[in-house]
Amino acid sequence: MIEIENLRKEYRRGAETVVACSVRALHIERGEQVALIGRSGCGKTTLLNMIAGIVRPSRGALRVAGTDLARLGEGRRDRFRGRHIGMVFQTFNLLQPFSALENVLLGAQFAGHDRAAARDRAHDLLQRVGLGERLHHRPNELSVGQMQRVAICRALINDPELILADEPLGNQDQATGGEVLQMLLGIAREEERTVVMVTHDLDSAALMQRTLDLEHLKEVA
């Protein structure tokens, strides 16, 4: 699903070149569930953004679902992301003006899916995570756990092959966060989706099939 070789992201800061992320080699199979760990600032989120096509690598090879993202222009990367990748963020990044249902629908609308079909699927997903009674609630009317579940549904709306999660437990307590994470992994497993999760929490990482320490670019478990 993901193939990386000598991938590097650099930024210029005045005369200085800052290396934000460097990965010698990484290979993740379709359907695999992988945790990325590492100290703060080692480039975990940058790597996730490159895999998502949000950030273009400075050099190296990056293939996701057989597509060389490093060679694609911004518009095509956006399209690719919309169709193949679902994202879950640390603070869930739900949009306040929109209801739970609308937040889930957004990705489908950007991808150009049929509105009625997308609405049915969003409905089903929210029912599946136990939010059938909260469809029209705004994010500020939901608990943290409920927001996280909405974020997971939003990531799944376009039926993506790859789910990227950046610290998806946020500041939740272990019990609630763990429960929702189990839910995400359960759905992903059922539907053979690949999950790559950035986390600093080793307990959460333990739920994944593999854990990679990005800082050292070597497998630690």
């Binding site: 998502a52 949000i54 518009g75 956006d78 399209r79 919309g82 990044n93 949009l95 957004l106 950007f110």
Partner: peptide, 16 residues
């Protein structure tokens, strides 16, 4: 900015 960035992360193109 954040709202737009989120939309972009969900697959919204610049043109959208």
């Amino acid at each position: 900015r954040r709202e737009i960035a989120i939309m972009r992360s969900l697959g919204a193109r610049r043109s959208q």
